[in-house]
């Protein structure tokens, strides 16, 4: 049974459309990323899911119901606009959210200390949050999200403000939880995070659902196959029939759709027959970053030009 069920979900702010006709399921233990350019409706979708804003139309069910605080499904939400009780002590804030999610005070205390030790913040437990650095505050906020061992994690740009070491550490931390069956909804612009942490991906464009599928399928369906090779000398004119993209001296690439009539094999055969001294040859799918640029690049550029 789907833990999260969304059908024909729309949210309008007056005449402005936040999201329109969104629908998907997320099974318990599954992880899904929501991606899209700024203003594409990601945060609105998350807010509708959690009941933070009332949807204009459609159905949003979490574990079979419109989600309300106090429901058995525990949710750890890290919002995009995050803040803290700045003057309160780190441990007190973590305890508070632990108890709000049903832990007794001793369990909340234990879990808070455990998290702080894991994050290397054990010595800061009794400091007021405002005395911490931005990165440390971000870790405390993530701690708030994880308190009470939520069944569903909804993380909006979780690694914003993290250095690469902390990003890697955080990704490992989340991956451990998803491997234990925690469901994850990840909103991010970091495509590497999507690749590392989620199985499925939802592309939003201008509030509408542009694509929904597995990360692997998205690369195939929205991306391209890149056959890249390196060579010595010049390419003979014979090869000019191929729509190659020269990428500097001795480097070229053929960009094509998956399954287009064994193109890499034919290209390599032609290069050999033409006497080109090929020193390297590989075929790979687009990365998610390339898929993102390929999907949204043109429309974003057009918007930039209009706004200019």
């Amino acid at each position: 049974m789907a833990l999260v069920k969304v059908r024909e979900l729309s949210k309008h702010y007056g005449s402005v459309t936040g999201i329109e006709g969104i629908q998907f399921n997320i099974d318990a233990g599954e992880s899904m990323a929501i991606v899209g350019p700024n203003g594409s409706g990601k945060t609105t979708l998350v807010r509708c899911l959690l009941g933070l804003v009332e949807a204009s139309e459609g159905i949003v069910h979490i574990a079979g119901n419109s989600y309300q605080p106090g429901d058995p499904t525990r949710i750890g939400y890290l919002p995009e606009d995050r803040g803290h009780f700045q003057r309160d002590r780190v441990i007190d804030v973590l305890r508070l959210f632990g108890t709000l999610r049903g832990l007794d005070s001793r369990a909340a205390d234990g879990q808070a200390h455990e998290y702080l030790e894991e994050m290397g913040l054990g010595s800061l437990a009794f400091r007021p949050i405002q005395a911490l650095s931005n990165g440390q505050q971000q870790k405390v906020h993530l701690g708030i999200t994880f308190m009470g061992d939520p069944d569903l994690l909804v993380l909006d740009e979780p690694t914003r403000g993290f250095d690469p070491v902390n990003k890697a550490f955080f990704n490992k931390y989340v991956a451990e939880r998803t491997s234990r069956g925690v469901t994850l909804i990840l909103v991010t612009h970091q495509m590497q995070e999507v690749d590392d942490l989620t199985e499925r991906i939802l592309f939003l464009d201008d509030g509408a659902q542009h694509y929904l599928g597995t990360v692997h399928d998205a690369k195939r369906d929205l991306g391209e196959i890149r056959t890249e090779f390196t060579f010595l000398g010049d390419l003979p004119s014979l090869i000019n029939d191929w729509p190659l993209e020269l990428q500097g001296r001795g480097r070229a690439a053929l960009i094509h759709r998956d399954g287009e009539d064994r193109m890499p094999e034919r290209l390599l055969s032609d290069l050999m027959n033409a006497g080109v001294r090929v020193t390297g040859f590989q075929t790979r799918s687009s990365t998610l970053d390339e898929v993102f640029v390929h999907t949204y690049g043109e429309s974003m550029q057009a918007e930039d030009e209009i706004s200019r």
Binding site: R47, L50, L52, Q68, P69, G70, I75, Y77, L78, P79, D81, R82, G83, H84, F85, Q86, F97, L100, R101, I144
Partner: peptide, 17 residues
């Protein structure tokens, strides 16, 4: 409001409460 903590709270407790 300034410290932007309402959204996180509202997931665990109703705004009215």
């Amino acid at each position: 409001r300034e410290q932007k903590i309402r959204e996180v709270l509202f997931v665990d407790v109703t705004a009215s409460s």
